[in-house]
Design a protein around this nucleic acid. Structure first.
Length: 479
RNA sequence: CCGGGUGUGGCGCAGUUGGUAGCGUGCUUGACUGGGGGUCAAGAGGCCGUGGGUUCAAGUCCCGCCACUCGGACCA
């Protein structure tokens, strides 16, 4: 119990204050630090290593599907941003402007990109001439700036890192397929690699991206029942093409406008990992992206042979089996246990004199603290199995939690009461009118998260106005 | 942007009616230890967020600003 008490001292318990728990984790697990720029953070090595693994994994998937990486300018001239009406209306309130070069005022001010549709479009208008130039499947890894009023580490910062894919296609069908495909990539990445169950769906018109014809999303439920949009994919039709005058000569020798998509996933997903898997002992990382997948902790390390054995295991396992580190610092074992739990390392391998005698070691899972005595010559097979077991354990736990915190309702009173008393997702029918979304926002404090692909028929009428329902919507409070 | 809270060694905090800036932890050095945040000893470390004001004297009182944080509004 003394041990338990210290853990609670280290970070605020989720139950006591979820927001504070989150803040404690990002700091104590050394993912980020605050900077002197309001709302901007320093991503520390451990946090960045996590992001690099996410990047590598996603980047491989993108390239597998034929996408290429590019680098666009950081700045967007005001006139360029303004070419697409809805787009500029959506983003103008939160862009940062550069007005001077050195001490000279600029002729035209430049905004720091909040997203790069306009830059891609300008470029595409110059390089797309023929159907033979299509599709264009570009992606860029970069950071963007949105002047947010309220910021939180990873979840909403003024500057954030992401990837933005921007593609151009010959036909509507092809572009819609791309939109769909990339949403699928995100969903599979979240579920397989991050062990975060997501709901695929479409955003309502009021929630869709500025300038898009349709926005698709994957929504995840956090520990506190709030929703986190974890990735989005947009279908633009030919709206931007027309606004930016992008035309190509088609197979039939006529001039046509190409169809466009964009899709993005940001460092916000790190917040999603924390709030989906973390517990009161700290971070819990899904094995696929954990910077350290297994930590070797020597016990009684000053005793003859212990460190040698630990180093031997490090050389034998690291990179060949998984990402391994050895902590041979002079801290006590208890301190190290707590430390690597805080950092969310999926597996811990303990090796001490008693183990060496029996040619075995102890492996402990981070997600449930289950302990295994493993013969040293079985490590190559057992470690991958255990990493997989951690991933599956995390996923199942998250899925069960989401299911147990999702409620179906058919009346407005029921919805209000549920929203009031039970954190989580609410499934309810909707007529398609924005007025009903507004009403539910005002009366119950929930917004539409998405119109899920997996539709259910709960009733014939809109939960809000009673008119005929068009679709089932997931409602909830969101980050 | 509105409302609440907080700014004092790296971190967490105390600091009374204004009068010599403290504690815990961490850090450094050494010794003993080591299977859930070990023990002892000796050290280093501070423009009290910032700018004004009141006062013989401000960490403390007054005003402004900034940052962080919580809630809300806004928002990909």
């Amino acid at each position: 119990m003394a041990e338990q008490k210290k853990m609670v001292d280290a970070i605020t318990s989720m139950e006591v204050d979820f927001a504070q728990w989150y803040t404690d984790i990002v700091k104590k697990a050394e993912l980020m630090d605050y900077s002197s720029v309001r709302g901007c953070m320093v991503i520390e090595p451990y946090g960045y290593a996590l992001w690099e693994n996410i990047q590598r994994d996603l980047d491989d998937r993108f390239k597998e599907l034929g996408h290429e990486n590019v680098a666009m300018p950081l700045f967007i001239p005001e006139s360029l941003l303004q070419k697409e009406k809805d787009h500029v209306e959506g983003f103008a309130p939160e862009v940062a402007w550069v007005t001077h070069g050195g001490s000279e005022p600029l002729q035209e001010r430049l905004c720091v990109r909040p997203t790069s549709e306009t830059l891609f479009c300008e470029h595409y208008s110059r390089v797309i001439h023929s159907y033979r130039d299509l599709p264009k499947l570009y992606n860029q890894w970069c950071s963007v700036v949105r002047w947010e009023k309220t910021t939180r580490p990873f979840l909403r910062s003024v500057e954030f890192h992401w990837q933005e894919g921007h593609t151009m296609h010959e036909t509507q069908v092809e572009a819609r397929q791309e939109t769909e495909q990339m949403l699928g990539v995100y969903a599979d990445f979240c579920e397989s690699d991050l062990a975060i169950p997501v709901i695929k769906g479409q955003k309502t018109d009021s929630e869709k991206f500025a300038g898009a014809e349709a926005t698709y999303t994957i929504e995840a439920m956090m520990h506190d029942g709030k929703a986190l949009q974890s990735g989005t994919s947009h279908y633009f039709g030919d709206g931007f093409s027309r606004a930016f005058d992008i035309q190509f000569q088609g197979r039939d020798n006529t001039l046509q406008y190409p169809f466009q998509t964009s899709w993005g996933l940001s460092t916000r997903v790190i917040g999603g990992i924390i709030m989906t898997h973390g517990d009161d002992n700290g971070l819990v990382l899904p094995p696929a992206v954990a910077p350290i997948q297994l930590i070797i902790l020597p016990i009684a390390q000053h005793k003859e042979g212990v460190l040698d054995k630990a180093r031997e295991l490090l050389g034998r396992l690291n990179k060949k089996v998984c990402r391994v580190r050895l902590d041979d610092s002079d801290q006590s074992p208890g301190w190290k246990f707590a430390q690597y739990e805080m950092k969310g390392v999926p597996l811990r391998l303990e090796i001490g004199p008693k183990d060496i005698e029996q040619n075995q070691c102890v492996i402990v899972r981070r997600d449930n603290r289950e302990k295994y005595f493993v013969p040293l010559d079985e490590l190559e097979t057992r470690i991958p199995e255990l990493l997989q077991a951690v991933r599956d354990g995390l996923y199942d736990k998250a899925l069960k939690r989401r299911e147990s915190m999702t409620y179906a309702v058919t009346t407005k009173n029921e919805l209000k009461q549920t929203a009031d008393t039970k954190p989580g997702f609410i499934k309810a029918m909707w007529c398609g009118e924005e007025a009903c979304e507004d009403a539910l926002k005002a009366e119950a404090g929930v917004s539409s998260r998405c119109i899920p692909y997996a539709q259910e028929h709960l009733s014939d009428e809109c939960v809000c106005c009673g008119k005929p329902a068009k679709a089932m919507v997931i409602w909830g409070k969101a980050y």
